[in-house]
């Protein structure tokens, strides 16, 4: 069974990527939110993306090799 951490990684990677890209879009086309100058979408999305990739690599389902 694929470990749950792999699924966590997939979700964090996809959501991180979407939020990062949307963060860049809102950086170019500023939106009216409080303390918008922080551009939280960019760094938070990037953080989620990196965490997600870490979970995927660490828990990637590999077939066990058998030795003769």
């Amino acid at each position: 069974m694929i470990p749950v951490w792999f699924f966590v990684g997939i979700l964090l990677t996809i959501y991180g990527l979407v939020i990062f890209i949307s963060g860049i879009y809102w950086f170019v086309n500023p939106v009216n939110i409080i303390v918008g100058y922080l551009h939280a979408g960019i760094w938070w999305g990037l953080l989620m993306l990196i965490s997600g990739l870490y979970f995927i690599v660490k828990n990637y389902p590999r077939k066990k090799r058998t030795t003769n």
Partner: peptide, 11 residues
Amino acid sequence: KRYFAPGLLGL
């Protein structure tokens, strides 16, 4: 709603 732009708000 106060702090999140679209994308983060969906999250």
